[in-house]
Nucleic acid binder design. Structure first.
Lengths: 204, 204
DNA sequence: CCCGCCGTATGACATCTGTCATGCAGGATC
DNA sequence: GATCCTGCATGACAGATGTCATACGGCGGG
């Protein structure tokens, strides 16, 4: 028989993290051997505990789960990565896959899928929600350039053009040009809508 | 000896809900007897299962945890209510308390506080994070009028003045007046910032 | 009864935003 | 080397947004 599966859990909300640990603790063949609350603590914890599978939330301080996934994939290629997120944003799925994730789960899927996904990735399978995959393909790739994304992200909090220009070391006109092209690419009417749509797609 | 504490769990993300159930299941004196995923399913589930404590997430479809709390407080006054939320927004705390909640927990508190809070509210105590309470008091009450809130909420998705006017059956000028006063009350420069601040405070 | 606030509305004004044409430098591609 | 794309910039213009003064009816408090 095989030994238990060693899992690393990365999730910033303690209550959710410990609850997930309790859930996985109910499984006989799974053992949560490490828990971290920050994206930038993932790699060393995975190394220190000889982990088989890393379960990563996306929204975390320090580094996102996607960034952590890429790092793990580079440094510990044998390690399997499951990305777990609140938001089923097509762009997140795409980035997670590009970062080398083996599974992508949303938190409103039934709890049973979590242990199941862990076993499947260890067996070499990939696990992704088919409808999300379809949405990701339908949306296509992120149409925004780096600069456009950067400006849009900075504009998300309601900053004015002048503030954006100062913060990004650009001229005010350039800021407006970037926002204008972003607005057109996203087929919306103003920056607020552009921010909303880009967020929904996971393109920010 | 006393019988086990019967708990109702209301949280829309299945994985989180079931994980919390697993967590509470580890406690000898606590039993999760019902789980619901919608705010408008809380009351009848609580009635049907003779629940002692209801654990309510705020963000849920159907009705918010706050609305559900108010309903429970009205219909089943003996029932204790614990509000559990991702966002430690002062305005949420205030509304939860006004709705008759007995405890207010944020999901990034340690998991141990959950069972502890359940026992405390049953003992007649109230449980709230002191720093959040301080923030709620410091912020004061929501300064926005009903209409201002309504317009701001509608403006949050990037709608233009004309769209807002049509949607709310107001003149465009009136919409601008409301947004203008909201902007001034929140001491910000434009509607986008106003939306952000109002959200952060839990005033939307 | 009067005052003040809320909801609603208008008009005028200043500023901010979004669009477009145009320009230039650097890197990639052919 | 010519061409194209990207990043950056400018100026001009139209339209959206924010401010302010003003107005009126209703409602609640003093």
């Amino acid at each position: 028989m095989s030994r238990t599966i060693k899992v690393l859990l990365a999730e910033d909300q303690s209550m959710v993290r410990e609850a997930l640990a309790a859930l996985l603790g109910l499984e006989e063949d799974i053992e949560v051997v490490a828990q971290v609350a920050r994206g930038d603590a993932v790699l060393s914890a995975a190394r220190d505990h000889g982990v088989d599978v890393a379960l990563l939330d996306i929204e975390m301080p320090g580094a996102t789960g996607i960034e952590a996934a890429a790092e793990l994939h580079r440094e510990l290629p044998a390690l399997k990565v499951v990305v777990l997120t609140t938001f089923g944003r097509p762009g997140y799925l795409r980035s997670a896959m590009e970062a080398g994730a083996d599974a992508f789960l949303v938190k409103d899927a039934p709890a049973s899928q979590l242990a199941e996904a862990i076993r499947k990735v260890l067996a070499g399978e990939r696990v992704i929600d088919p409808s999300l995959a379809a949405a990701a393909l339908a949306d296509g790739a992120n149409p925004l350039t780096d600069r456009e994304r950067e400006v849009l992200r900075a504009a998300a909090d309601g900053s004015t053009n002048a503030e954006l220009a100062a913060a990004l070391h650009l001229s005010q006109g350039t800021v407006r040009n970037y926002l204008s092209t972003a607005i057109q690419k996203l087929a919306v009417r103003n920056r607020a809508e552009a921010v909303r749509i880009a967020r929904e797609k996971g393109w920010l």
